[in-house]
Nucleic acid binder design. Structure first.
Length: 592
RNA sequence: GGGGUGGUAGCUCAGUUGGUUAGAGCGUCUGCCUGUCACGCAGAAGGUCGCGAGUUCGAGUCUCGUCCAUCCCGCCA
């Protein structure tokens, strides 16, 4: 039996025609003499009626069984039409039934509402059932549409998609890699590509000029709701382009994706925010600008304060920052405690605060403040009744981090109380720019590339590379949406001499190591490397936000758990001794 | 590696101060039912309270360890 229609197709215009449908049994309603089966396929649901000799057979059907049905399309009695169903005016009067497979009872409900509450480990174990849920099916479709829009866009912009190797060489800088032992070269390893960075730059030297790729990337780092061990990047690189060119190009792509997927017109250009300003105002380099609660610097106010904790921090080169969690004065002891724990985990000694209730400032520290200081606070933080002010006194980056995090938690508490709304469909894109090219790593006592070592310095800062490396800004940019870093890129270094200098003189990578790891790149650059730049953008994260979730597991068909396991297929597993022997490797833990 | 939350029936959860035979809703199974669409009605089955120790006359409940899921920190050039 071949199906002639799908399950969202039949309307009164098909009346009295004989059609065949195939799909899954969504539900069975057995009334004894008459049985209704909701038949479901990818497109929708159609009601099938069994009241003939097929009744006995239909009575044996269970939910999620796979059947094919032939019958006549009939109009339902007027009162029996279902307005909630696109096919609700008609039903199929079954004359033939093929049972392809009777299903076991599913271990959890396959509805949107029921399935969302189920423990995720169960959903992952039975992912093929989870993916039958309408919401998950929709997520897969959204991902497809978004990916297609990206390909169409870059194609129209005359970019070409070039595939690059997943099996690359190990470059221990940056993210931890997955190693792949070589059978042919005993004792040697490939690494799964963390990103096509080096290949795409080489493609520029190769004269491709406009490259893009929907690229799978691999990183052996701990997983999060927005991080999987393998993930997909929209990877782009172009020659003869500057930062403004990248901004325009990429804003165009996002505009198209939002148009195609959500029929939403994204306003462009996106606002830009300097890294330093982002940190100062929001305490993070990926601010969520859908709500304010902005940080304020109070170092001037407390420079000579009688409150020694503040004054001495400032004297030692630190700063005092605060923000007003407007209307959160009714915070509970438990909530304050939780905020304090978070602050402490970020290096704070405590989390000072002032509650303002009934015109009175309630706080363990307010007794140390002078009237002038109080007046300054009131003015700078727009303090009113019902507010609570959180303070941090520490080094600049630590104070930013503490309050940046506290700001997000406070926002959640305000949302919980219904005093603030953070809409999932408000799209606050922004470019974060002017990152420092290098930052000093206290652990290894050397400079490390903030982004990656191929980022070009801002031209007017180039002179500072030797004298004051941390003052040099990179031509780097991040795309941020609603507090999530979606991507980043830079204009690259295309002069081999400058690249070599960055590796050896600034990052202090020994010359022989530079030669063995990046020698081929430096060599390529000596054969006419065009100026170029690009961006790498997290497809999974973007699709997640398009789907109204922040967990990329919801938009990846077969994701891993936080412990990096596939609960369905049950990977990873031990391998046989022969496999290990072929690969010339031994495990320290013996195979089981 | 560290911190938080959770783990009780197939699923989602409740379970009081440590005290009799561990409950509910949904689902499942059986029977009845020709107009339901979350069908209805009647009945039934279903439990290693994640696992292991410990305290106690007595542990779902308290303590310690451990496993799993999840959120976060570290980590993610």
């Amino acid at each position: 039996m071949k199906r002639t229609h799908h399950c969202a197709q039949l309307t009164p215009s098909d009346l009295h025609t004989t059609v065949s449908l195939a799909g899954w049994v969504d539900s069975v309603r057995d009334h004894g003499g008459i049985i209704f089966v909701d038949l479901r396929d990818r497109q929708g649901i159609t009601q099938v009626k069994f009241d003939t000799n097929l009744r006995a057979e239909a009575a044996l059907l269970k939910a999620e069984s796979v059947i094919a049905v032939t019958g006549k399309v009939e109009l339902r009695p007027e009162a029996m039409m279902n307005k909630n169903l696109p096919t609700g005016q008609v039903e199929l009067d079954a004359s033939e039934l093929v049972v392809h497979n009777i299903s076991e009872t599913p271990p959890f409900p396959l509805t949107d509402a029921g399935g969302d509450k189920v423990n995720e480990d169960l959903r992952l174990t039975y992912r093929y059932l989870d993916l039958r849920r309408p919401k998950m099916r929709k997520n897969l479709l959204t991902r497809h549409r978004a990916t297609k829009a990206v390909r169409d866009y870059f194609d129209a912009q005359e970019f070409i998609e070039v595939e690059t190797p997943a099996l690359f060489k190990s470059t221990p800088e940056g993210a931890r890699e997955y190693l792949v032992p070589s059978r042919i070269h005993p004792g040697e390893f490939y690494a799964l590509s963390q990103s096509p960075q080096q290949f795409k730059q080489i493609l520029m030297v190769a004269g491709v000029e406009k490259y893009f790729q929907i690229a799978r990337c691999f990183r052996d780092e701990d997983l999060r709701s927005d991080r999987q061990m393998e993930f997909t990047q929209i990877d782009v690189e172009a020659s003869f382009i500057d930062r403004e060119g990248i901004y325009t190009l990429f804003e165009g792509m996002l505009k198209k994706v939002w148009q195609e997927v959500l029929q939403h017109d994204l306003p462009t250009p996106f606002p830009r925010l300097a890294y330093h300003d982002a940190m100062n105002r929001y305490g993070v380099d990926k601010p969520d600008t859908r709500f304010a609660l902005e940080l304020v610097d109070l170092s001037d106010t407390f420079k000579t304060s009688g409150f020694k904790v503040f004054a001495s921090t400032i004297a030692a080169g630190g700063c005092v920052k605060a923000f007003n969690a407007k209307g959160l004065a009714d915070i509970t002891q438990g909530e304050i405690g939780a905020l304090e724990e978070i602050a402490k985990s970020l290096g704070a000694k405590g989390l000072a605060f002032i509650k303002v209730e009934a015109g009175e400032w309630k706080s363990p520290i307010v007794k140390f403040f002078s009237e002038a200081e109080k007046a300054a606070l009131t003015q700078k933080l727009s303090i009113a009744d019902g507010d609570i002010i959180f303070f941090a006194a520490a080094t600049w980056d630590r104070a930013c981090a503490i309050l940046g995090r506290t700001r997000l938690e406070a926002a959640q508490l305000l949302v919980k109380r219904g005093r603030m709304t953070i809409r999932a469909d408000q799209w606050n894109f922004l470019w974060v720019v002017d990152f420092p090219l290098m930052s000093y790593d206290e652990e290894t006592k050397r400079y490390v590339a903030t982004h990656h070592p191929f980022t070009a310095p801002v031209p007017e800062d180039t002179a500072l590379i030797d004298s004051d490396p941390k003052a040099v800004r990179g031509q780097h940019y991040d795309v941020v949406l609603n507090g999530m870093e979606l991507g980043g890129g830079s204009i690259r270094i295309h002069q081999p001499a400058l690249q070599k200098k960055i590796f050896e003189d600034v990052l202090k990578i020994p010359a022989d190591v530079v030669e063995s790891r990046f020698g081929y790149m430096l060599k390529a650059f000596t054969y006419g490397a065009p100026p170029h730049g690009g961006i790498a953008f997290g497809l999974d994260r973007m699709v997640a936000l398009l789907c109204g979730t922040t967990s990329i597991r919801d938009v990846i068909a077969f994701p891993k758990t936080q412990k990096a396991q596939d609960l369905m297929a049950q990977s990873p597993t031990p391998v046989t001794a022969k496999q290990l022997k072929d690969l010339h490797i031994q495990t320290v833990i013996p195979p089981q």
